[in-house]
């Protein structure tokens, strides 16, 4: 009997033939109580104040209202940074996703038997994943200078860690049967991997890459804040100068781009599975 059942006695159900079945009590009430306590504590700690929310919340709308109508005349100046943003995310996603493959293979416990190697590579992936993209971009601008190269590298680093983790988890759940069959046929480990494991993980790998690319377009649009090129650069500038109609135009274009890319990527991913 579990600890929970010992503390809170199960409900006894009696069947027609006299057999007794103990139904463990639901854990939901306990979870709800704990959740409420945690919420109260976090409100205390963060100083969240409902009164301020009500009195100042309206200011959101004031800024939003200033963005309407967006200044369409500004559009021609947005194309270049917008394409920079897309280029950064596309190239960065591609480079990161390709680099992730060898690392993911080495991090898979069903392929590599050496515990030390696995733990080392996984630790590396987690550390890289913990770095916020904005911080990576900032560091990259110190090394490679201001501009889209720094942004591309920041995106690649994030994609590498993200796709790498998803891929090694995917590799670990494959059916090892075909791999065994390839080995029994006299194929070496590399060829067995290529023909038994890759076909199993390829669709979800591509799907993950596309999903990551979708997100990267959004990340890339703020990387300009630290000088890494793209939309963020002019977004930062126009907010600073309070030219909200231009900010509105930038957001509309970004929104349209993200929707188009997400729709396309969603359609592609639905074809993959």
């Amino acid at each position: 009997m579990s600890l929970y059942s010992r503390v809170i006695k199960p409900k006894s159900l009696i069947l027609g033939n006299g057999k007794v079945v103990d139904e463990p009590r639901s854990k939901a009430p306990l979870v709800i109580v704990l959740f409420c306590i945690a919420s109260l504590i976090s409100i205390k700690i963060t100083g969240f104040d409902m009164a301020v929310m009500f009195s100042r919340g309206g200011q959101f709308l004031v800024i939003l209202r200033k963005m309407v109508p967006p200044e369409f005349a500004y559009m021609p100046k947005i194309w270049q940074p917008l394409f920079d943003t897309i280029k950064m995310s596309l190239l960065g996603s591609f480079v990161g996703a390709v680099l992730a493959v060898p690392f993911a293979v080495v991090a898979s416990s069903n392929i590599v038997k050496n515990r030390f190697v696995i733990v080392f590579v996984r630790l590396l992936l987690s550390i890289v994943r913990t770095l916020p993209t904005l911080v990576t971009a900032l560091i990259a601008t110190y090394i490679f200078g201001l501009g889209t190269l720094a942004g591309t590298i920041a995106i690649a680093v994030f994609t590498f860690a993200y796709v790498g983790k998803l891929l090694y988890e995917e590799i670990e759940t494959v059916d090892m049967g075909p791999f065994e069959a390839m080995q029994a046929m006299g194929a070496n480990k590399g060829r067995s991997f290529m023909y038994a494991i890759i076909p199993q993980v390829l669709p979800s790998y591509l799907s993950n890459c596309l999903f990551c690319f979708e997100g990267n377009v959004r990340y890339a649009s703020i990387l300009g804040y630290v000088g890494a090129g793209g939309l963020g650069l002019i977004l930062n500038e126009k907010i600073g100068w309070r030219e909200y109609t231009k900010v509105g135009m930038i957001l509309v274009m970004l929104f349209a781009t993200v929707v188009i890319i997400e729709t396309f990527s969603h359609w592609l991913r639905s074809k993959l599975t």
Partner: peptide, 22 residues
């Protein structure tokens, strides 16, 4: 094998062709 050990996500012919891979 008991569980066939085929790559089920690809076509029959691709599975048979793997016997030439080595």
């Amino acid at each position: 094998f008991q569980s066939f050990n085929l790559v089920t996500r690809t076509t029959v012919i691709k599975n048979v062709l793997t016997s030439f891979v080595p």
